[in-house]
């Protein structure tokens, strides 16, 4: 009872000190103390409700160690990342060129946009039975589902980017008589690239959400499967929560990695004056 209260009190004090600090101090101290307060409240709630099922922070930390030592973590993380990477790359490889063409050519847009808009709202989760039917339980189905979940945001984002290319840039290209592939390589693609990168970032986030759900329902490995397995094998909610935290941390790392794309000179213009 006293330990969580002490943690909360110390964290609150750190928070108050942090609010008086410089921007740098605030950036470190404020999120850390808020997190500590939340963990303290979590612990307090466990003590107050005297729960026998939901894990305390300490138990979760122990479970964390258990997963890491069991070596399952590595295999399941690799399985999830493998499916996300391939599904995402395939979706980008198909979605970006398709989005460029559909966005640029009005006739192609008229022909394909209704189909794209009609398929887009179908949750990738709804495709799980079909994915298993076609690919069986395994990586194929996972890659297919991630492909679907990334393909639509990337294609639609690229289409929108192309349709947003400013009139002066289009006219500059016309003035210097750019056509065909050269027009795409020198104007249409680079002009859309900042927004394409934004849609890549969004779809990678969605892909990481979808893979966990897909692995819980239709696969026998991966972090989603690990969660399901932990619950089914004796209600190990400590393992469930520890795995959830790992999923969150990997998500942050994925986002940090893809954000590096926004730092190139060729695209930075797209993120400042908009």
């Amino acid at each position: 009872m006293t330990t969580p209260l002490i943690v909360i009190a110390v964290a609150a004090l750190c928070f108050l000190i942090g609010t008086r600090g410089s921007a740098r101090v605030q950036n470190i101290l404020l999120p850390l103390s808020v997190t500590a307060i939340l963990v303290g409240l979590w612990d307090l709630a466990c003590v107050l409700t005297d729960t026998q099922v939901f894990p305390t922070p300490a138990k979760t930390w122990a479970a964390f160690g258990e997963i890491v030592e069991s070596e399952r973590l590595w295999g399941d993380t690799v399985a999830s990342l493998f499916r996300v990477t391939w599904g995402f790359l395939l979706a980008a490889a198909v979605g970006i060129p398709l989005g460029l063409v559909v966005g640029w050519s009005t006739r192609t847009f008229r022909a394909l946009n209704p189909i794209i808009q009609g398929l887009r709202p179908i949750s990738p989760i709804a495709w799980i039975p079909i994915a298993i039917l076609w690919f069986g339980i395994g990586d194929g189905a996972g890659i297919f589902l991630i492909f679907l979940s990334s393909f639509f945001p990337i294609t639609v984002g690229t289409m929108a980017a192309v349709r947003n290319i400013s009139l002066v840039h289009q006219r500059s290209a016309m003035n210097f008589q750019m056509t065909g592939l050269e027009l795409f390589r020198r104007v249409v693609f680079p002009a859309s690239l900042p927004q394409i990168i934004t849609s890549l970032r969004i779809s990678l986030g969605v892909a990481w959400l979808v893979i966990v759900a897909a692995e819980m329902v239709g696969m026998d490995s991966g972090l989603g499967y690990l969660i399901n397995d932990a619950r089914n094998a004796g209600s190990r909610y400590d393992l469930v929560v520890a795995t959830m935290i790992i999923i969150g941390l990997i998500g942050i790392v994925l986002d940090l990695l893809i954000r590096q794309l926004e730092k190139f000179d060729e695209v930075r213009w797209g993120y400042v004056n908009r």
Partner: peptide, 21 residues
């Protein structure tokens, strides 16, 4: 009837390409 590089337009809102040096 169409644009031609012998006659070049200079725009108010910066027609240069921000993605190129």
């Amino acid at each position: 009837t169409a644009p031609d590089p012998r006659r070049v337009f200079v725009f108010q809102e910066y027609g240069i390409f921000p993605w190129a040096s």
